[in-house]
Design a protein around this nucleic acid. Structure first.
Lengths: 210, 210
DNA sequence: GACTGTGAAGCCATTCACAGCT
DNA sequence: AGCTGTGAATGGCTTCACAGTC
Protein backbone atom coordinates (compact mmCIF):
# COMPACT_ATOMS: atom_id res chain seq x y z
CA UNK A 1 0.00 0.00 0.00
CA UNK A 2 1.76 3.14 -1.20
CA UNK A 3 -1.11 5.23 0.17
CA UNK A 4 -0.20 8.78 0.98
CA UNK A 5 -2.78 11.32 0.02
CA UNK A 6 -5.85 9.54 -1.26
CA UNK A 7 -8.72 11.69 -2.59
CA UNK A 8 -11.76 11.39 -0.41
CA UNK A 9 -13.85 10.84 -3.54
CA UNK A 10 -11.74 7.76 -4.24
CA UNK A 11 -12.46 6.34 -0.80
CA UNK A 12 -16.18 6.92 -1.24
CA UNK A 13 -16.13 5.16 -4.59
CA UNK A 14 -14.22 2.22 -3.15
CA UNK A 15 -17.05 1.78 -0.68
CA UNK A 16 -19.50 1.72 -3.57
CA UNK A 17 -17.36 -0.66 -5.63
CA UNK A 18 -17.25 -3.04 -2.68
CA UNK A 19 -21.03 -3.22 -2.57
CA UNK A 20 -21.21 -3.84 -6.29
CA UNK A 21 -18.60 -6.60 -6.00
CA UNK A 22 -20.54 -8.16 -3.12
CA UNK A 23 -23.58 -8.23 -5.37
CA UNK A 24 -21.54 -9.94 -8.11
CA UNK A 25 -20.29 -12.52 -5.62
CA UNK A 26 -23.87 -13.38 -4.67
CA UNK A 27 -24.65 -13.77 -8.35
CA UNK A 28 -21.68 -16.10 -8.73
CA UNK A 29 -19.47 -14.07 -11.10
CA UNK A 30 -15.83 -15.10 -11.15
CA UNK A 31 -14.17 -12.15 -12.86
CA UNK A 32 -15.12 -8.59 -13.69
CA UNK A 33 -13.55 -5.82 -15.83
CA UNK A 34 -13.12 -2.17 -14.89
CA UNK A 35 -15.66 -1.42 -17.59
CA UNK A 36 -18.29 -3.62 -15.98
CA UNK A 37 -17.72 -2.09 -12.56
CA UNK A 38 -17.91 1.36 -14.15
CA UNK A 39 -21.19 0.49 -15.86
CA UNK A 40 -22.59 -0.92 -12.63
CA UNK A 41 -21.86 2.05 -10.42
CA UNK A 42 -22.02 4.91 -12.90
CA UNK A 43 -18.44 6.13 -13.31
CA UNK A 44 -15.81 5.81 -16.08
CA UNK A 45 -13.65 2.72 -16.41
CA UNK A 46 -10.49 4.85 -16.25
CA UNK A 47 -11.77 6.17 -12.94
CA UNK A 48 -12.13 2.67 -11.55
CA UNK A 49 -8.60 1.74 -12.60
CA UNK A 50 -7.11 4.98 -11.25
CA UNK A 51 -8.85 4.50 -7.92
CA UNK A 52 -7.47 1.00 -7.56
CA UNK A 53 -4.00 2.09 -8.73
CA UNK A 54 -3.58 4.14 -5.54
CA UNK A 55 -3.34 0.89 -3.62
CA UNK A 56 -1.63 -1.60 -5.91
CA UNK A 57 -2.13 -3.80 -8.95
CA UNK A 58 -5.05 -6.13 -8.45
CA UNK A 59 -5.98 -7.12 -11.98
CA UNK A 60 -4.74 -9.25 -14.84
CA UNK A 61 -4.24 -7.57 -18.22
CA UNK A 62 -6.48 -8.97 -20.87
CA UNK A 63 -8.73 -10.55 -18.25
CA UNK A 64 -9.90 -8.23 -15.49
CA UNK A 65 -10.20 -8.71 -11.75
CA UNK A 66 -11.10 -11.80 -9.72
CA UNK A 67 -14.30 -10.68 -8.00
CA UNK A 68 -13.75 -12.24 -4.58
CA UNK A 69 -10.09 -11.25 -4.46
CA UNK A 70 -10.76 -7.64 -5.37
CA UNK A 71 -13.60 -7.53 -2.86
CA UNK A 72 -11.23 -8.75 -0.16
CA UNK A 73 -8.58 -6.18 -1.05
CA UNK A 74 -11.05 -3.30 -0.99
CA UNK A 75 -12.60 -4.41 2.29
CA UNK A 76 -9.13 -4.48 3.78
CA UNK A 77 -8.23 -1.07 2.34
CA UNK A 78 -11.41 0.37 3.86
CA UNK A 79 -10.59 -1.14 7.24
CA UNK A 80 -13.66 -3.38 7.02
CA UNK A 81 -11.71 -6.56 7.70
CA UNK A 82 -12.31 -5.87 11.37
CA UNK A 83 -15.07 -4.69 13.69
CA UNK A 84 -15.56 -1.08 14.82
CA UNK A 85 -17.39 0.02 17.93
CA UNK A 86 -19.66 3.05 17.78
CA UNK A 87 -21.60 5.11 20.27
CA UNK A 88 -24.62 7.21 19.38
CA UNK A 89 -25.16 10.46 21.25
CA UNK A 90 -28.76 11.59 20.99
CA UNK A 91 -31.60 9.07 21.07
CA UNK A 92 -34.19 11.17 19.28
CA UNK A 93 -35.88 9.95 16.13
CA UNK A 94 -32.72 10.02 14.03
CA UNK A 95 -30.42 8.54 16.67
CA UNK A 96 -32.90 5.73 17.31
CA UNK A 97 -33.27 5.04 13.61
CA UNK A 98 -29.51 4.79 13.22
CA UNK A 99 -29.20 2.56 16.28
CA UNK A 100 -31.60 0.11 14.68
CA UNK A 101 -30.16 0.36 11.15
CA UNK A 102 -29.14 -3.12 10.07
CA UNK A 103 -26.80 -1.82 7.36
CA UNK A 104 -24.23 -0.81 9.95
CA UNK A 105 -23.92 -4.18 11.64
CA UNK A 106 -23.72 -5.82 8.22
CA UNK A 107 -20.51 -3.92 7.52
CA UNK A 108 -18.86 -4.48 10.89
CA UNK A 109 -20.01 -1.38 12.74
CA UNK A 110 -21.38 -2.29 16.16
CA UNK A 111 -23.50 0.17 18.08
CA UNK A 112 -22.30 -0.43 21.63
CA UNK A 113 -24.15 2.35 23.43
CA UNK A 114 -26.80 5.03 22.92
CA UNK A 115 -26.91 8.04 25.23
CA UNK A 116 -29.31 10.92 25.76
CA UNK A 117 -29.82 13.74 28.21
CA UNK A 118 -33.62 13.54 28.30
CA UNK A 119 -34.86 11.58 31.37
CA UNK A 120 -38.00 10.63 29.45
CA UNK A 121 -35.93 8.73 26.91
CA UNK A 122 -33.28 7.25 29.21
CA UNK A 123 -34.08 3.65 29.96
CA UNK A 124 -35.90 3.00 26.70
CA UNK A 125 -34.81 -0.10 24.82
CA UNK A 126 -33.68 -0.08 21.20
CA UNK A 127 -33.34 -3.64 20.12
CA UNK A 128 -30.78 -4.98 22.55
CA UNK A 129 -29.46 -1.62 23.71
CA UNK A 130 -30.73 0.49 26.56
CA UNK A 131 -30.59 4.27 26.24
CA UNK A 132 -28.38 5.58 29.02
CA UNK A 133 -27.62 8.97 30.56
CA UNK A 134 -25.21 11.30 28.81
CA UNK A 135 -23.07 11.26 31.95
CA UNK A 136 -21.99 7.72 31.13
CA UNK A 137 -20.12 8.91 28.04
CA UNK A 138 -16.50 8.62 29.16
CA UNK A 139 -17.19 5.37 31.01
CA UNK A 140 -18.86 3.69 28.02
CA UNK A 141 -16.25 4.90 25.54
CA UNK A 142 -13.48 3.33 27.59
CA UNK A 143 -15.24 0.17 28.65
CA UNK A 144 -16.54 -0.63 25.14
CA UNK A 145 -13.38 0.50 23.34
CA UNK A 146 -15.41 2.89 21.19
CA UNK A 147 -13.79 4.00 17.92
CA UNK A 148 -16.55 6.09 16.41
CA UNK A 149 -18.93 8.67 17.84
CA UNK A 150 -22.19 9.43 16.05
CA UNK A 151 -23.76 12.78 16.89
CA UNK A 152 -27.52 13.16 16.56
CA UNK A 153 -28.15 15.87 19.13
CA UNK A 154 -29.54 19.36 18.45
CA UNK A 155 -27.09 21.90 17.02
CA UNK A 156 -26.99 23.84 20.29
CA UNK A 157 -25.22 21.06 22.19
CA UNK A 158 -23.33 19.40 19.33
CA UNK A 159 -19.95 21.03 20.02
CA UNK A 160 -20.22 20.22 23.70
CA UNK A 161 -20.77 16.48 23.20
CA UNK A 162 -18.09 16.48 20.49
CA UNK A 163 -15.59 17.86 23.00
CA UNK A 164 -16.61 15.19 25.48
CA UNK A 165 -16.15 12.44 22.90
CA UNK A 166 -12.70 13.74 22.00
CA UNK A 167 -11.81 14.11 25.66
CA UNK A 168 -12.75 10.47 26.14
CA UNK A 169 -10.41 9.48 23.30
CA UNK A 170 -12.70 9.01 20.29
CA UNK A 171 -10.81 9.63 17.03
CA UNK A 172 -13.65 9.52 14.49
CA UNK A 173 -16.94 11.39 14.49
CA UNK A 174 -19.98 11.21 12.24
CA UNK A 175 -21.96 14.39 12.70
CA UNK A 176 -25.64 14.60 11.80
CA UNK A 177 -26.24 17.93 13.51
CA UNK A 178 -26.44 21.05 11.36
CA UNK A 179 -23.44 22.59 13.07
CA UNK A 180 -19.83 23.14 11.99
CA UNK A 181 -17.78 21.28 14.57
CA UNK A 182 -14.22 22.13 15.56
CA UNK A 183 -12.05 19.07 16.12
CA UNK A 184 -8.28 18.59 16.51
CA UNK A 185 -6.18 17.56 13.50
CA UNK A 186 -5.94 13.94 14.58
CA UNK A 187 -9.71 13.43 14.78
CA UNK A 188 -11.55 12.44 11.59
CA UNK A 189 -14.85 14.20 11.13
CA UNK A 190 -17.59 13.64 8.57
CA UNK A 191 -20.75 15.66 8.31
CA UNK A 192 -24.07 14.39 7.02
CA UNK A 193 -26.17 17.49 6.74
CA UNK A 194 -29.73 16.61 5.77
CA UNK A 195 -30.85 20.19 5.19
CA UNK A 196 -27.89 20.96 2.95
CA UNK A 197 -28.83 18.02 0.76
CA UNK A 198 -32.42 19.12 0.45
CA UNK A 199 -31.31 22.66 -0.27
CA UNK A 200 -29.09 21.56 -3.13
CA UNK A 201 -32.20 19.96 -4.62
CA UNK A 202 -34.16 23.14 -3.99
CA UNK A 203 -31.48 25.18 -5.76
CA UNK A 204 -31.65 22.98 -8.82
CA UNK A 205 -35.44 22.96 -8.86
CA UNK A 206 -35.50 26.74 -8.53
CA UNK A 207 -33.09 27.06 -11.49
CA UNK A 208 -35.55 25.25 -13.72
CA UNK A 209 -38.70 26.86 -12.33
CA UNK A 210 -37.57 30.34 -13.41
CA UNK B 1 -28.34 36.08 -11.76
CA UNK B 2 -25.75 35.16 -14.34
CA UNK B 3 -25.83 31.57 -13.13
CA UNK B 4 -24.60 29.09 -15.62
CA UNK B 5 -22.52 26.29 -14.22
CA UNK B 6 -22.30 26.64 -10.46
CA UNK B 7 -20.08 24.16 -8.60
CA UNK B 8 -22.10 21.91 -6.37
CA UNK B 9 -19.66 22.64 -3.56
CA UNK B 10 -20.60 26.30 -3.85
CA UNK B 11 -24.30 25.51 -3.48
CA UNK B 12 -23.62 23.40 -0.40
CA UNK B 13 -21.59 26.19 1.15
CA UNK B 14 -24.31 28.74 0.42
CA UNK B 15 -26.67 26.59 2.44
CA UNK B 16 -24.20 26.65 5.31
CA UNK B 17 -23.59 30.39 5.01
CA UNK B 18 -27.34 30.96 5.20
CA UNK B 19 -27.53 29.15 8.52
CA UNK B 20 -24.61 31.14 9.87
CA UNK B 21 -26.24 34.39 8.74
CA UNK B 22 -29.51 33.35 10.37
CA UNK B 23 -27.59 32.86 13.60
CA UNK B 24 -26.07 36.34 13.25
CA UNK B 25 -29.52 37.83 12.68
CA UNK B 26 -30.77 36.27 15.90
CA UNK B 27 -27.77 37.77 17.67
CA UNK B 28 -28.61 41.16 16.17
CA UNK B 29 -25.54 41.75 13.97
CA UNK B 30 -26.01 44.37 11.27
CA UNK B 31 -23.05 43.72 9.00
CA UNK B 32 -20.56 40.92 8.49
CA UNK B 33 -17.34 40.55 6.49
CA UNK B 34 -16.32 37.64 4.29
CA UNK B 35 -13.58 36.97 6.84
CA UNK B 36 -16.08 36.60 9.66
CA UNK B 37 -18.29 34.27 7.66
CA UNK B 38 -15.20 32.28 6.71
CA UNK B 39 -14.14 32.01 10.34
CA UNK B 40 -17.64 30.98 11.39
CA UNK B 41 -18.08 28.17 8.91
CA UNK B 42 -14.50 27.00 8.41
CA UNK B 43 -13.56 28.07 4.88
CA UNK B 44 -11.32 30.82 3.46
CA UNK B 45 -12.58 34.38 3.01
CA UNK B 46 -11.67 34.29 -0.69
CA UNK B 47 -13.87 31.22 -1.00
CA UNK B 48 -16.82 33.06 0.50
CA UNK B 49 -16.38 35.98 -1.90
CA UNK B 50 -15.93 33.72 -4.92
CA UNK B 51 -19.05 31.75 -4.03
CA UNK B 52 -21.11 34.91 -3.80
CA UNK B 53 -19.57 36.35 -6.98
CA UNK B 54 -21.30 33.65 -9.03
CA UNK B 55 -24.58 35.38 -8.30
CA UNK B 56 -23.83 39.08 -8.15
CA UNK B 57 -22.29 41.80 -5.99
CA UNK B 58 -23.88 41.86 -2.58
CA UNK B 59 -21.29 43.65 -0.46
CA UNK B 60 -19.86 47.11 0.09
CA UNK B 61 -16.11 47.55 -0.21
CA UNK B 62 -14.51 48.61 3.01
CA UNK B 63 -17.58 47.58 4.97
CA UNK B 64 -18.83 44.04 4.29
CA UNK B 65 -22.32 42.66 3.81
CA UNK B 66 -25.59 43.65 5.43
CA UNK B 67 -26.53 40.47 7.28
CA UNK B 68 -30.27 40.45 6.62
CA UNK B 69 -29.89 41.47 2.99
CA UNK B 70 -27.29 38.82 2.23
CA UNK B 71 -29.42 36.24 4.02
CA UNK B 72 -32.36 37.18 1.83
CA UNK B 73 -30.32 36.95 -1.35
CA UNK B 74 -28.94 33.53 -0.47
CA UNK B 75 -32.34 32.18 0.52
CA UNK B 76 -33.66 33.32 -2.83
CA UNK B 77 -30.70 31.82 -4.71
CA UNK B 78 -31.31 28.50 -2.95
CA UNK B 79 -34.98 28.62 -3.84
CA UNK B 80 -35.93 28.84 -0.17
CA UNK B 81 -38.10 31.91 -0.65
CA UNK B 82 -40.94 29.50 -1.35
CA UNK B 83 -42.36 26.25 -0.05
CA UNK B 84 -41.54 22.81 -1.46
CA UNK B 85 -43.69 19.73 -1.11
CA UNK B 86 -42.05 16.40 -0.41
CA UNK B 87 -43.19 12.80 -0.23
CA UNK B 88 -41.38 10.10 1.71
CA UNK B 89 -41.40 6.58 0.31
CA UNK B 90 -40.62 4.05 3.01
CA UNK B 91 -41.95 4.51 6.55
CA UNK B 92 -39.35 2.41 8.33
CA UNK B 93 -37.20 3.84 11.09
CA UNK B 94 -35.35 6.26 8.85
CA UNK B 95 -38.37 7.39 6.85
CA UNK B 96 -40.33 8.00 10.04
CA UNK B 97 -37.46 9.92 11.59
CA UNK B 98 -37.25 12.16 8.52
CA UNK B 99 -41.02 12.66 8.46
CA UNK B 100 -40.86 14.00 11.99
CA UNK B 101 -37.66 16.04 11.54
CA UNK B 102 -38.45 19.65 12.38
CA UNK B 103 -35.43 20.99 10.48
CA UNK B 104 -37.20 20.39 7.17
CA UNK B 105 -40.35 22.35 7.93
CA UNK B 106 -38.19 25.17 9.30
CA UNK B 107 -36.61 25.62 5.87
CA UNK B 108 -39.81 25.42 3.85
CA UNK B 109 -39.89 21.71 3.06
CA UNK B 110 -43.31 20.25 3.79
CA UNK B 111 -43.76 16.51 4.09
CA UNK B 112 -47.13 16.03 2.42
CA UNK B 113 -47.31 12.25 2.39
CA UNK B 114 -45.54 9.14 3.65
CA UNK B 115 -46.05 5.82 1.86
CA UNK B 116 -45.10 2.24 2.57
CA UNK B 117 -45.82 -1.19 1.20
CA UNK B 118 -46.02 -2.99 4.55
CA UNK B 119 -49.66 -3.44 5.71
CA UNK B 120 -48.47 -3.46 9.32
CA UNK B 121 -47.20 0.11 8.97
CA UNK B 122 -49.93 1.53 6.75
CA UNK B 123 -52.38 3.52 8.83
CA UNK B 124 -49.84 4.50 11.49
CA UNK B 125 -49.75 8.20 12.31
CA UNK B 126 -46.59 10.29 12.23
CA UNK B 127 -47.44 13.62 13.74
CA UNK B 128 -50.22 14.86 11.50
CA UNK B 129 -49.54 12.48 8.62
CA UNK B 130 -50.97 9.02 8.11
CA UNK B 131 -48.81 6.40 6.44
CA UNK B 132 -50.57 5.32 3.26
CA UNK B 133 -50.22 2.48 0.77
CA UNK B 134 -47.55 2.67 -1.90
CA UNK B 135 -50.29 2.40 -4.51
CA UNK B 136 -51.33 5.97 -3.72
CA UNK B 137 -48.06 7.33 -5.08
CA UNK B 138 -49.17 8.85 -8.36
CA UNK B 139 -52.38 10.17 -6.81
CA UNK B 140 -50.63 11.91 -3.91
CA UNK B 141 -47.88 13.36 -6.09
CA UNK B 142 -50.44 15.02 -8.32
CA UNK B 143 -52.93 16.07 -5.68
CA UNK B 144 -50.29 17.55 -3.35
CA UNK B 145 -48.14 19.04 -6.14
CA UNK B 146 -45.10 17.15 -4.88
CA UNK B 147 -41.71 18.53 -5.95
CA UNK B 148 -39.36 16.24 -4.08
CA UNK B 149 -39.32 12.49 -3.48
CA UNK B 150 -37.39 11.07 -0.54
CA UNK B 151 -36.46 7.41 -0.83
CA UNK B 152 -35.99 5.40 2.35
CA UNK B 153 -36.87 1.94 1.09
CA UNK B 154 -34.55 -1.10 0.95
CA UNK B 155 -32.03 -1.18 -1.91
CA UNK B 156 -33.91 -3.99 -3.66
CA UNK B 157 -36.95 -1.83 -4.45
CA UNK B 158 -35.28 1.59 -4.66
CA UNK B 159 -35.06 1.75 -8.46
CA UNK B 160 -38.67 0.64 -8.79
CA UNK B 161 -40.09 3.40 -6.58
CA UNK B 162 -37.73 5.89 -8.24
CA UNK B 163 -39.22 5.01 -11.61
CA UNK B 164 -42.71 5.45 -10.19
CA UNK B 165 -41.84 8.87 -8.77
CA UNK B 166 -40.40 9.99 -12.10
CA UNK B 167 -43.39 8.56 -13.93
CA UNK B 168 -45.62 10.65 -11.67
CA UNK B 169 -43.65 13.79 -12.57
CA UNK B 170 -41.27 14.29 -9.63
CA UNK B 171 -38.13 16.17 -10.74
CA UNK B 172 -35.97 15.92 -7.60
CA UNK B 173 -35.05 12.87 -5.55
CA UNK B 174 -33.18 12.48 -2.28
CA UNK B 175 -32.02 8.89 -2.03
CA UNK B 176 -31.13 7.30 1.30
CA UNK B 177 -30.95 3.75 -0.05
CA UNK B 178 -27.53 2.23 -0.69
CA UNK B 179 -28.25 1.83 -4.38
CA UNK B 180 -27.05 3.65 -7.50
CA UNK B 181 -30.20 4.98 -9.11
CA UNK B 182 -30.67 5.68 -12.80
CA UNK B 183 -32.66 8.82 -13.51
CA UNK B 184 -33.24 10.90 -16.67
CA UNK B 185 -31.13 14.02 -17.31
CA UNK B 186 -33.86 16.38 -16.20
CA UNK B 187 -34.29 14.82 -12.76
CA UNK B 188 -32.02 16.03 -9.96
CA UNK B 189 -30.73 13.25 -7.74
CA UNK B 190 -28.79 13.41 -4.50
CA UNK B 191 -27.57 10.43 -2.55
CA UNK B 192 -27.08 10.28 1.20
CA UNK B 193 -25.30 7.02 1.76
CA UNK B 194 -24.92 6.32 5.46
CA UNK B 195 -22.63 3.33 5.04
CA UNK B 196 -20.29 5.17 2.70
CA UNK B 197 -19.87 7.87 5.30
CA UNK B 198 -19.04 5.40 8.04
CA UNK B 199 -16.65 3.60 5.72
CA UNK B 200 -14.71 6.77 4.98
CA UNK B 201 -14.22 7.08 8.74
CA UNK B 202 -13.19 3.44 8.91
CA UNK B 203 -10.65 4.00 6.13
CA UNK B 204 -9.08 6.90 7.98
CA UNK B 205 -9.04 5.04 11.29
CA UNK B 206 -7.45 2.03 9.63
CA UNK B 207 -4.74 4.25 8.11
CA UNK B 208 -3.69 5.36 11.58
CA UNK B 209 -4.08 1.98 13.25
CA UNK B 210 -1.43 0.41 11.01
C1' DG C 1 -7.66 51.56 6.58
C1' DA C 2 -10.75 48.10 5.59
C1' DC C 3 -12.91 44.98 2.82
C1' DT C 4 -14.98 43.54 -1.68
C1' DG C 5 -14.61 41.71 -6.35
C1' DT C 6 -11.81 39.35 -9.64
C1' DG C 7 -8.09 37.94 -13.05
C1' DA C 8 -4.22 34.91 -12.66
C1' DA C 9 -1.85 31.16 -10.65
C1' DG C 10 -1.84 26.92 -8.40
C1' DC C 11 -3.58 22.60 -7.28
C1' DC C 12 -6.07 18.48 -7.56
C1' DA C 13 -9.14 15.12 -9.68
C1' DT C 14 -10.77 13.15 -13.91
C1' DT C 15 -10.27 11.75 -18.63
C1' DC C 16 -7.51 10.43 -22.51
C1' DA C 17 -4.77 7.44 -24.93
C1' DC C 18 -1.60 4.02 -25.37
C1' DA C 19 2.20 0.89 -23.96
C1' DG C 20 2.45 -3.50 -21.76
C1' DC C 21 0.74 -8.11 -20.44
C1' DT C 22 -1.87 -12.42 -20.97
C1' DA D 1 -7.82 -9.47 -29.06
C1' DG D 2 -8.78 -7.81 -24.66
C1' DC D 3 -8.09 -5.36 -20.63
C1' DT D 4 -4.98 -3.36 -17.12
C1' DG D 5 -1.87 0.26 -15.50
C1' DT D 6 -0.21 4.85 -16.11
C1' DG D 7 2.03 9.25 -17.97
C1' DA D 8 0.15 13.21 -20.18
C1' DA D 9 -3.54 16.32 -21.09
C1' DT D 10 -7.57 18.41 -19.57
C1' DG D 11 -10.87 20.59 -16.75
C1' DG D 12 -12.52 22.63 -12.63
C1' DC D 13 -12.25 24.36 -7.98
C1' DT D 14 -9.51 26.98 -4.66
C1' DT D 15 -6.10 30.25 -3.30
C1' DC D 16 -3.43 34.26 -4.19
C1' DA D 17 -2.83 38.90 -4.67
C1' DC D 18 -4.19 43.25 -5.79
C1' DA D 19 -6.93 46.96 -8.02
C1' DG D 20 -11.14 49.22 -6.91
C1' DT D 21 -14.33 51.37 -3.66
C1' DC D 22 -16.17 53.23 0.55
Amino acid sequence: MKAYKIPEATVMRLSIYSRFLHQLMLEGSETVSSGEIAEGVGVSSAQVRKDLAYFGEFGTRGVGYKVDELYGYIMKILGLDRQWNAIIIGAGKLGSALALYQGFADRGFNIKAVLDINPQIIGARLDGIEVEALGKLAERVKEQAINIGVITVPASVAQEVTDQLIQAGVKAILNFSPRILKVPQDVVLRNVDLSVNLEVLSFNLALNHR
